[in-house]
Nucleic acid binder design. Sequence first.
DNA 1: GTCTATACTTAGATAGAC
DNA 2: GTCTATCTAAGTATAGAC
Lengths: 202, 202
Amino acid sequence: MENPRQDTKARIVDNAVQMFSAKNYERVTMRDIAAAVGIKAASLYSHFKSKDDILTGVYELFEETAAGIRPSPAALIAMAETAPPKQAVGSAFFYFRPTDHEKMLRILNIAYMMSGSDRRSREFFQRHVFDAPRLYAGNILRKLVSLGRIEPLDIENFLVLQTYFCFGAILRSFTPGVSVREEWESGLNALLELIRSTEQEH
Amino acid sequence: MENPRQDTKARIVDNAVQMFSAKNYERVTMRDIAAAVGIKAASLYSHFKSKDDILTGVYELFEETAAGIRPSPAALIAMAETAPPKQAVGSAFFYFRPTDHEKMLRILNIAYMMSGSDRRSREFFQRHVFDAPRLYAGNILRKLVSLGRIEPLDIENFLVLQTYFCFGAILRSFTPGVSVREEWESGLNALLELIRSTEQEH
DNA sequence: GTCTATACTTAGATAGAC
DNA sequence: GTCTATCTAAGTATAGAC
């Protein structure tokens, strides 16, 4: 079923992710995608019934990959109970680290750019960048506070700041010529200053 | 020279700002803009020589407005010397408050969406969202620290977090159906927790 | 599943009358 | 400066042979 050299459908999606995130959906033509894959535009229609359908394929790829790397609720609780507090909070970001999962970030960037005119993209973006991370980080923070491992803080405000920081870093990371990695580390360090451990540092 | 009812050129730019930020440059047609202004598409070409030229007009509007509201270096120093520290830092954001200068934020949003394929937009965005605010806030923070009005902090890290937070809030503010105002206040409160005044609170 | 050829549509831009 | 009419280019998508 899976002929690795031959899975044209997957290669179309991969190339579309690269190109849509680097330029923007409307400025990437079916001919562009076909050329990157090494086929003719008409052949794309053997795999996807429209350009919009390729975008659907892109979002499906994200969902599948996310399902594979998402920490389980049990793992999150374990983190909150035993890992160093700052690390526990950091773990809630999973696919946001610009160093990992670059393809995932590219897809989120595409979804943002489509948000203005495509409802599906808007909801996808909301779900993955705002709702889910806020839920994860919120659970970890509440657990850390209730365990007395960190000093109490305004969790809602923290979550907003954290979410917007991630949001900014995601979008920033695909501006041509910008390397967001050091900035990600810097910003994260500043953000985690807000988490004050009650335990002695090693 | 300025016939307020009749300055079609300015009305074209205003409508273009609304429409480009709500949808995205490529999905707004010359016919759309003309219809919003109340003229025919061909008439746009009496005011601008191309669609791209309208975008130039949009950025020029931003530059002119920014020049009018930018605090002077002297005003910033005065802020750092006398205003409550958190307020002084907050003042470095000037046109980022989602409650004010909505048109400015819309223009920044347009520039972001164009960044992938338009160098001028990319440089414009970099200048106004990253370089200038970082310079302003950095100067205020260094002044506050050197005056002993706040406890020392890692200014570089703080600036990264601050810049990305603003960046996120700007972009977020034009996602349809999202009201960013309360979140802006929440995130800003969290961010300013990192600024610790050495003076007694009122 | 891929190709060539082409249909169809839309968008940016121009010509020229008023 | 605005209009109607129109040109031209480009992009999505289809038809039908191999």
